[in-house]
């Protein structure tokens, strides 16, 4: 499991897509703090809570709007590529299928955790404070997005299709979720309870629900993968 995770983690740092996404994250973190300092220097009338959040607001918006697109862009074929190329046979004949899914998840999760942590460190240098709640909320959001990506990669056998689906879901996901989170239409409003934005609206521990939803998606992924011939 850890070997699979380690390989996934290291491979995510290679390639132009990863470099671009890491650069976007780090540059956003830097300019987010610069903008925050500029706004604060104008003497804006903001609360203490807003003052703390203002430094990380750039990263938060980036992950909220493009997080799913980034995660799917890098990992849309995390499972189905190995199924398609049949390299998965080397793995399923060696370890439990659940360990393969969990190993892949851990590798991707650690990659995003590292990227997010470094971004927050950049903010921390300027803000001189580490917004732990915002960090944990975004981590829970990314955990949800990674689990959804793995689920789709197990469900859809063709890597080419998940690439297309990744772009579609990546763009539609924040729009759809923002809609179901804010709408008063009772026919769609219930969906907010299975989407991650609802649980990160306020600075409390509701974000832990996202981890629960991620676990459910991972369990479904494992059960589907267990029933699949490779």
């Amino acid at each position: 499991m850890f070997s699979i995770g380690k390989r996934e983690f290291i491979s995510l740092f290679k390639g132009i897509k990863s470099i671009v996404i890491i650069a976007i994250l780090l540059v956003s973190a830097y300019y987010s703090t610069k903008l925050a300092e500029l706004l604060l220097s104008t003497g804006m009338n903001i609360s203490a809570e807003e003052r703390q959040n203002i430094y990380t607001v750039g990263i938060q918006f980036l992950i909220l709007l493009f997080g799913q697109l980034f995660v799917m862009g890098l990992s849309h074929d995390v499972m189905n590529k190995e199924l398609h190329e049949r390299t998965i046979r080397f793995l399923v004949s060696r370890v439990a299928r659940s360990q393969i899914v969990i190993g892949k998840f851990l590798g991707i999760w650690l990659f995003w955790l590292t990227c997010l942590f470094v971004s927050f460190l950049i903010v921390c240098v300027f803000a001189q404070t580490f917004d732990i709640i915002a960090f944990l909320q975004l981590t829970s959001l990314l955990t949800y997005q990674i689990s959804l990506t793995i689920l789709l990669s197990v469900l859809v056998p063709k890597p080419g299709f998940t690439m297309f689906l990744g772009i579609l879901v990546g763009i539609a996901f924040p729009i759809l979720i923002a809609w179901v989170t804010l709408t008063s239409n009772v026919w769609v409003a219930w969906m907010r309870y299975i989407t991650p934005f609802y649980y990160i609206q306020h600075p409390n521990f509701a974000f832990l629900t996202n981890l629960l939803l991620s676990c459910v998606m991972l369990i479904i992924s494992i059960e589907i993968f267990k029933r699949r011939d490779c």
Binding site: R86, T87, R89, F90, S93, R94, V95, A96
Partner: peptide, 13 residues
């Protein structure tokens, strides 16, 4: 599984 070695057919590396 840890005690068996497998060379599957049609597997790319």
């Amino acid at each position: 599984k840890k005690r068996i070695g497998v060379m599957p057919d049609y597997s790319s590396l």
